[in-house]
Simulated assay, not measured.
Amino acid sequence: MSLPRANYDPRRVCMNPFPNLHLGKYTRSVGVYLAGALFALANWAFLDACILSSHAHGPPDEPDYEAPVHVSFVDWVPGICSLLGYLIINLIDKDRVKGDQGFGDARAVWRARLFLFIGFALMAGGLAGSVTVLVLKYTFNHDYPEAFTYYGYANVCQNILMMLSACVLWLAQSSASEYEYNLTL
């Protein structure tokens, strides 16, 4: 084994531990606000595309012209998957995933890691679904004007920003808080 026996812990899954970020006094607060801003920007981009799609109409000289494509339920599914993954990831106790607090029950650490994997899998599935919708619905064998392909780009943008927001929030919550005290007897 490459690790010295003193550093070996049989409960560890990964060789590298989670990072302990100590970037300043307000790191946690700035990270939480940044994650919230990314989450809001993600949903704003997609809702903007939905509103534009619902008000899409033809040019004034052609009143019978129907818009070639609209945002439908298929466009909402990747965002819903990413939102569920976002919620699962951020509801997990970070200490339980690390296994640091001596939870006694090894199955609890395993379940926490399983749920973390499911959360990231939902987010990755949402991103893959949004790219699939963009390619199949808006670009593949369709020559829609740029105004209509924006709907697909907004969907991909929403999922990417949600993933970034989840990562920023995870790192911010993993950093040391300015109100954290260690009491020992």
Rank of each mutant, 00 (worst) to 15 (best):
V74T: 08
V74G: 01
L84Q: 04
F46G: 06
E66V: 14
Y86M: 11
P60H: 14
P59E: 13
G85E: 10
I89W: 02
S82R: 05
E66Y: 12
S53W: 08
G58A: 10
V74M: 10
D64C: 04
F73H: 04
L52W: 13
H57P: 00
L52K: 15
F46L: 04
V69Q: 05
W76H: 03
D64R: 15
H55Q: 10
H70W: 09
L87P: 00
F46P: 00
I51P: 00
V77G: 00
D64H: 13
W76P: 00
W76V: 09
P78M: 04
I89L: 07
G85M: 05
V74H: 03
A49Y: 00
Y86G: 00
G85P: 01
E62P: 00
C81V: 04
S72H: 04
I51E: 07
P60L: 15
L84M: 11
I51L: 13
D75L: 09
D48V: 14
F73T: 06
F46M: 13
G85N: 06
G79D: 08
S82H: 07
D61I: 13
P78W: 09
D75E: 13
A56P: 01
S72V: 11
V69L: 10
F73V: 11
Y86T: 03
C81H: 04
P68R: 15
E66A: 11
P59G: 14
P63R: 10
V71F: 09
V71Y: 09
E66G: 00
H55L: 12
Y86D: 00
L52N: 14
D48R: 15
L52E: 09
V77Q: 02
A49C: 11
V77N: 01
S54Q: 05
L47F: 13
I51N: 02
S54N: 04
D64I: 10
S54R: 13
P78D: 03
P78L: 02
N90T: 06
S53Y: 10
F46T: 09
I88K: 00
S82T: 14
F46H: 13
V69S: 03
P63G: 07
L83Y: 14
E62H: 14
P60C: 01
V77M: 06
S53D: 03
L47H: 06
I80K: 00
L83F: 15
P63T: 15
F73Q: 04
G79E: 04
L52S: 11
I89Y: 03
P59T: 15
S72M: 09
A49L: 11
G58S: 07
G58H: 08
C81I: 03
H70L: 06
G58F: 14
V71R: 04
F46R: 07
V69W: 05
S54A: 12
S72F: 03
L52H: 12
D61A: 07
E62A: 06
L83C: 03
I80Y: 03
G58R: 11
L84N: 02
L83K: 02
P63Q: 13
S53L: 06
W76I: 10
E62K: 13
P60N: 11
P63I: 15
V69C: 03
D48C: 08
S72N: 09
S54H: 05
L84I: 15
H55T: 12
D61H: 14
F73W: 12
H70I: 12
E62D: 06
Y86L: 12
D61M: 07
C50E: 12
F46Q: 08
C81Q: 06
S54G: 04
A67Q: 05
